[in-house]
């Protein structure tokens, strides 16, 4: 038991990231509101970024921007996750922008962003 608790404390960021990821996933699957789905997607992505960022950190080191100390390898944390997170954030911003634009169009056309009502309205439209 204490082993498990130690493992969880040891990996607290990963555990948080996993919980957030599943919260995002569940909301994305179950929310009927389109805007909330976009929010859920952002939670999911942020959780992944948290996971990624926590992987590169080493206790007692600083961000990988070289200062007076020069290129002393043991002074700086791993720069790769930071770069990947940067890329990932930009991608998720773009996707959010696209989905929000789509939702704006849907709202202008149907006057609602609830998935259930939308499905009903489109069914009527087809008939």
């Amino acid at each position: 038991m204490t082993g498990l608790i130690n493992a969880i404390i040891d990996n607290r960021y990963a555990v948080t990231a996993v919980l957030l990821f599943v919260i995002g996933l569940a909301n994305m699957l179950l929310q009927p509101n389109l805007i909330k789905k976009v929010v859920a997607f952002n939670i999911m992505d942020s959780a992944t970024f948290l996971m990624l960022a926590s992987r590169g950190f080493v206790e007692g080191r600083v961000a990988a921007v070289l200062t007076d100390g020069g290129a002393d390898v043991s002074r700086y944390v791993n720069p790769i996750p930071a770069g990947l997170v940067l890329t990932g954030i930009v991608v998720s911003v773009s996707v959010s922008a696209f989905s929000l634009a789509l939702i704006q169009r849907i709202y202008a056309r149907y006057g609602t962003v609830e998935l259930g009502e939308l499905l009903k309205l489109t069914k009527k439209e087809k008939v």
């Binding site: 996933l25 994305m28 699957l29 389109l34 789905k37 997607f41 996707v95 696209f98 989905s99 789509l102 939702i103 169009r105 849907i106 056309r109 149907y110 939308l118 499905l119 489109t122 439209e125 087809k126």
Partner: peptide
């Protein structure tokens, strides 16, 4: 209208 709805479903599944 139908492509808008189809796209939003497609997009959310793809994002997942």
């Amino acid at each position: 209208g139908s492509t808008l709805m189809a796209t939003i479903r497609y997009l959310f599944m793809s994002l997942l």
